[in-house]
Amino acid sequence: MQLREILGKYPKTEDYLIEILLDYQKTKIHHYLSEEELKEIAEHLNISESKVSSVMTFYTLFSMKPKGQYVIQICHDVPCYVNDQNSILKTLTNLLNIQVGETTEDKMFTLEYTSCLGACDKAPAMRIGEKTFTALTPNKVKAILAEYRGKKHA
């Protein structure tokens, strides 16, 4: 969807800045907003670019750098921690060869932490896009990654 269309959906006041940013970023395959887009939003709402940028950098869901096509979010909370999240994290960093916060060279995966996914009963958990994976084991993680890698070649 075009940025103009999304801007048109909301009243022209800065109250709706966060909604506009969320809505537009959702349409982008690499989950980020460019400087030009940021500028256009600022002009439309008649606020400064630095205001938009300060809001974007404050909230974790926004990015100004391109991310991988699939963003892997590992639940970074205690119920997952006590259920051996650490071995899941190590498996992921080993297999992807990146650290948390980084993106693979082929722009396929980004690894990040997320706050509680509300899946504490089936910890440890992670999410890729909208899909939540629970009761993870190192082997299950291997299989999930293989499946997503397969999607790329399909």
């Binding site: 800065e14 109250d15 709706y16 966060i18 969320l22 809001v55 404050f58 909230y59 974790t60 706050s115």
Partner: peptide, 24 residues
Amino acid sequence: KLGAGAFVCGEETALIRSMEGHRG
């Protein structure tokens, strides 16, 4: 009104700032 991933926005004054389109 939607939040965008900031734990501090559970604090009521930060929540209000966020609702107004600012940093929370």
